[in-house]
């Protein structure tokens, strides 16, 4: 990491993180500091471990069969893998949005937004207010305010993805993980979600995994290039896309990878 990164505001400090599926080591010792209120992109070829990486950051990876994890993930200095810590508590603070929009199909838009709070048994004093605030945050309020009782899966793909983001935001997380959030969206819906990422990036710590390098270049402040389960280079996005330091990063982003 070059001096262009301010290390004083680390939100999530990943230390020597290793992850397995059975005997196969997917992450081979990742150390990376995710900065508070910044958008960090993780790029790399298929199979480089970038999705596994984000799934380790809110303790989703361990739910996969034969999964293993070692190392530390420090959220504001405290290890989310500490013994006795309830993973559900971690996931409240570190929300996630997935590749395919996954609103609960038989729940109304209104209930979809509140689903996380219900599952976590969180008392919400004013539900309607929370729903409106979360939907406004993702720019969906004006589009759906008259059909809050309709099922969420009637919405377009882009609207569904923003609904899922609203559901994550309703839990008031500190970190939002996004795994290929636009890969099933058309360019207009993608542009809306990207704009949203930039806006939310001013208040939340966002980590986005993407195959789309131009997307990483557009939305992120920092970019990490993963290859074969290791961080090859992590730096300001401007540096990565104009003058990367590692030849492997250069080869990957310019399209010279075998």
């Amino acid at each position: 990491m070059s001096e262009s990164i301010d290390k004083t505001a680390i939100k999530l400090d990943v230390v020597k993180l290793r992850a397995w599926f059975g005997a196969f080591e997917v992450l081979r010792g990742i150390s990376l500091s995710v900065l508070a209120r910044r958008v960090t992109a993780v790029i790399g070829p298929s199979g480089c471990g970038k999705s596994t990486f984000v799934r380790c950051l809110n303790r989703l990876h361990e739910l996969s069969p034969r999964a293993g994890v070692t190392g530390q993930v420090l959220l504001d200095g405290s290890d989310i893998y500490a013994a006795g810590l309830d993973p559900a508590r971690v996931r409240r603070r570190i929300g996630m949005v997935f590749q395919k929009p996954n609103p609960f199909p038989h729940m109304s838009i209104h209930d979809n937004v509140l689903a996380g709070t219900r599952m976590n048994g969180i008392a919400v004093p004013d539900r309607d207010q929370l729903v409106e605030r979360a939907l406004r945050q993702v720019g969906l309020w004006d589009e759906v305010k008259d059909e809050l009782d309709r099922p969420g899966h009637h919405l377009s793909g882009g609207q569904q993805q923003r609904l899922c983001l609203a559901r994550a935001l309703a839990l008031e997380p500190e970190v939002i993980l996004m795994d290929e959030p636009c890969s099933s969206l058309d360019p207009v819906a993608t542009a809306k979600v990207e704009e949203l990422i930039r806006e939310l990036g001013e208040r939340y710590t966002i980590l986005i995994v993407t195959h789309n390098m131009q997307q990483a270049a557009r939305v992120s402040d920092l970019t990490a290039f993963f290859y074969l389960g290791e961080v090859v280079e992590y730096d300001a996005t401007d540096v990565i896309f104009t003058k990367p330091n590692d030849a492997r990063t250069e080869d990957y982003i310019t399209g010279r990878f075998g």
């Binding site: 390098m213 896309f241 104009t242 003058k243 990367p244 990063t249 250069e250 982003i253 310019t254």
Partner: peptide
């Protein structure tokens, strides 16, 4: 092509 890095330069 949206060139980057050495190609962009």
């Amino acid at each position: 092509r949206q060139p980057v890095a050495s190609d962009l330069r």
